[in-house]
Simulated assay, not measured.
Amino acid sequence: MVALAILSLLTSITALVLAGAAWQKTKDVRRSGSGSADPLPTDVTGLRAEVAALRTEAAMNMRHLAVVRFDAFGDAGGHLSWCLALLDDSGDGVVLTSIHGRTEARSYAKSISAWESSQQLSPEETEAVQQAKPGR
């Protein structure tokens, strides 16, 4: 039971580290030129350029996410296993999976590029990626 709690804690820490890295990336982009410290343009062309820059910045954020909960084994109920897809507008990101059994839990991370993975995805991981896709 203690091992299960430790693995769940490690999975949570991994998710927090990924979220922190994404937040830091956004903060760095704002500092490097298109941040809110610059005065806003007053002409329509300047405003359109500002909106385009903001859209480009937003596309790099991991803002598409989905969670799929499931029972990995027949003898363990309660949907304690889960897959979490964290993706940007291009479909790049990661799928985190935690599989809980009666005596242990295992965690996996698989990279996603353009909504696909070079590693084989489980049906639940595929479902999480599909659910994270905009306009599905």
Rank of each mutant, 00 (worst) to 15 (best):
T45D: 08
M60D: 07
A22Q: 02
L80P: 13
R48M: 08
W115D: 01
A22E: 02
S118Q: 14
R106E: 10
V129M: 00
S118P: 08
T126R: 13
I6S: 03
W115I: 01
I112N: 03
V2Q: 15
D75W: 01
D71W: 01
A76C: 12
I13Y: 06
A15R: 01
A5N: 13
K110M: 11
V17N: 09
L47C: 09
V94D: 06
A128I: 10
K25S: 05
T42L: 09
M1E: 15
G101R: 00
A5E: 14
R31Q: 13
A114R: 03
P41I: 05
A58P: 06
E57C: 09
A132N: 01
N61E: 15
T11F: 10
S12Q: 14
A58Q: 11
G101K: 03
R102C: 02
L65K: 05
S34K: 15
D71I: 00
L86V: 12
R30H: 14
W23T: 08
S34L: 13
A132D: 01
R55C: 04
E104H: 07
I99M: 00
R136G: 13
C83T: 12
Q130T: 08
A19Q: 03
R136I: 09
L7N: 15
S122Y: 02
S98W: 13
E116L: 02
T126M: 12
L10E: 09
D92H: 00
S32D: 14
D92E: 05
V44F: 04
K25Y: 06
A5R: 14
L9C: 12
A52F: 00
T56E: 08
D92M: 00
G93H: 00
L18A: 04
D92K: 00
S122R: 02
K25P: 03
M1A: 14
N61K: 15
D38S: 14
A72E: 12
H79S: 14
K25E: 10
R63M: 07
P41V: 07
V2W: 11
L86I: 11
T26M: 06
H79P: 03
V17M: 03
V129Q: 00
E116Y: 03
W23V: 02
G74S: 11
T11E: 12
A52K: 07
V67E: 06
P123T: 06
T97K: 00
Q24K: 12
T56N: 13
S117W: 04
L84R: 05
A85Q: 08
L10P: 04
V51F: 09
L10T: 08
S117C: 04
L4E: 15
V51Q: 05
V68G: 12
V44A: 01
P39M: 08
V44H: 05
V94L: 05
E124S: 05
S8A: 13
E124R: 07
K27S: 15
G78S: 13
G78D: 11
G33I: 12
